[in-house]
Amino acid sequence: MLNSVLGMHLTILAASGRTGLALTRQALERGHTVTAIARDPQRIALDHSNLSKVAGDVSDPASIAVDADTVVLSGLGTDRAGVLLDGAKAVVAAGPRRIIWLGTYGTGPSADAAGEGAAVLWKFFGDRIPDKVAADTAVLAAGGTVFHAGVLTDDPLAPGRTVGLDAAPPFDLGAKVSRETVAAAMLDEAENPRFPGAVALPLAG
């Protein structure tokens, strides 16, 4: 992977969260330079010469430090409605080289592929689903890649594979994938784009 060898500049949103930390740590291990953004940068429990920690909140677009030569990877969660769309708008407006966004399998573009089982998501996310869909739509329209992951775990990195919606399996709460595996798939996409402007599914095994 040429880009991986040379190193890239990556900006990671929500870098203090569980997925964001996995993205940040793995990116540094791959030799990239990382700007890690979090509401409280002190919670980014990593130190590295290639790591810059920056305070930022997606509800305040001016606080999101993104330049045109960076690839943005988002580990944003859904702790409150509006967060994802705020984040997507802020990042798209900043005009980075590429955006790799984390979404949820069974929502928006992947709802049909997921089948009837995806209806259970409304029990977990409720009124936050429209926010997810709107954020995904904004990122896709900007040519970014949206990773629709299933149930996430804190298990270690394991072999995985990434497929498009044409190869998506039915939604299954038992088909879990680790955040470490999802982070690796998102970084693979940043280094070697396979799904620009499309939804991709990170799967275990």
Rank of each mutant, 00 (worst) to 15 (best):
D136N: 03
L165H: 13
R179N: 11
R194I: 09
V91A: 03
V151H: 13
G95N: 10
N192D: 15
L21K: 00
R128D: 15
D60V: 11
R30E: 10
V54I: 10
L173W: 15
G143F: 13
V58H: 13
L203K: 07
V58Q: 09
P170N: 06
R25H: 06
V5H: 13
G56E: 01
R39P: 04
A38T: 02
I99W: 12
P61R: 05
A183S: 11
A14I: 03
G160E: 11
A118Y: 05
P61D: 12
V91N: 02
A158W: 13
H9Q: 03
D136I: 02
T153P: 10
E116I: 12
V139R: 06
G106A: 01
A68Y: 15
N50M: 02
P196M: 02
M8Q: 01
V182Y: 13
F171C: 00
T162R: 03
G164T: 03
T181F: 01
V58S: 02
D154M: 00
F171N: 12
W122M: 06
A198F: 14
A119H: 14
L84W: 14
A142H: 14
D127A: 08
V182I: 08
L73A: 02
T70Y: 05
A168P: 06
T137W: 15
A141F: 15
A38H: 07
E189L: 08
L152C: 01
P159F: 04
N50W: 09
A62G: 10
D188K: 03
V139T: 03
H48M: 02
K89V: 05
S74R: 02
F171I: 01
S59Q: 12
A138H: 14
R97I: 09
S16Q: 07
A135H: 14
G117W: 05
P202E: 07
R18G: 05
V163Q: 00
V133R: 10
